[in-house]
């Protein structure tokens, strides 16, 4: 796969070496250019923009639990607006949701922003450029890497909407808090989804990046 791909690129560059004003877009659809791209430059941009979105979400979480720490028991309308009556009744952060937010803030920041976002963006962008290569060795695995990362991000965010809330045992998920479903609400479906999400994240890291 990777050999065929790079051979194709070389040939391509050889044929069109002098006529490059048209940007090489003649055989690319929107999907192959922006969605399922195998180009290291596009994949690095995909990682960066995904990481920015995840960072904004995790940053908002930190503001919510910082409000509780600074002014415990005070009512904030925006907490109710974001979390609803279940987790932010009357604008007071629910204690279980506090633990969940601390956990998911840590998980997203460590794995999705600073690992996936940082290495995913700059390793993909700079390694082919700075070693003088036409692309990563296997563009297909590189594309899969991004989409496993995307899927794992979606599952992590979806766990926020489960009935008992997301994983709440801290980003280090020490047992027994994380291991026993009855230990805390977040250790039920939320913890399972956390594990599924992290498994996909590890698959993404192993494929590329």
């Amino acid at each position: 796969m990777s050999h065929a791909h790079s051979a194709d690129l070389t040939e391509h560059a050889g044929h069109h070496g002098h006529a490059h004003d048209h940007d090489d877009e003649h055989h690319e659809s929107f999907v192959s250019k922006y969605i399922f791209s195998m180009d290291h430059k596009m994949i690095s941009r995909q990682f960066l923009i995904t990481a920015i979105i995840m960072a904004v979400i995790a940053m908002t979480m930190s503001i919510i639990f910082r409000m509780q720490l600074a002014w415990p028991g005070e009512k904030f309308g925006f907490i109710n607006a974001i979390l609803g009556d279940k987790w932010g009744k009357d604008g007071i952060l629910d204690p279980n949701m506090y633990l969940a937010l601390v956990t998911i803030h840590g998980t997203i920041m460590v794995f999705f922003v600073l690992t996936g976002g940082l290495s995913g963006t700059f390793a993909n962008l700079l390694i082919p450029y700075q070693v003088g290569a036409r692309d990563m060795a296997s563009g297909f695995l590189n594309m899969l890497s991004y989409w496993f990362f995307f899927l794992s991000s979606v599952i992590m965010l979806a766990s926020l909407y489960t009935e008992n809330g997301p994983a709440s045992g801290g980003w280090t998920i020490y047992p027994p808090l994380s291991a026993l479903p009855e230990a805390m609400p977040g250790s039920k479906l939320g913890m399972t989804m956390w594990l599924i999400s992290m498994t996909l994240f590890v698959v993404s890291s192993l494929l590329a990046r």
């Binding site: 391509h12 069109h16 940007d23 430059k41 596009m42 450029y129 700075q130 003088g132 290569a133 036409r134």
Partner: peptide, 27 residues
Amino acid sequence: NTLEWTTPMANIHGNWPGPLPVVHRWA
């Protein structure tokens, strides 16, 4: 000094339109 700034400002496939650049010195 690094190689990424020698590619055209166009985000083309294969990064360099002609042959790959040759490195003669450190960065």
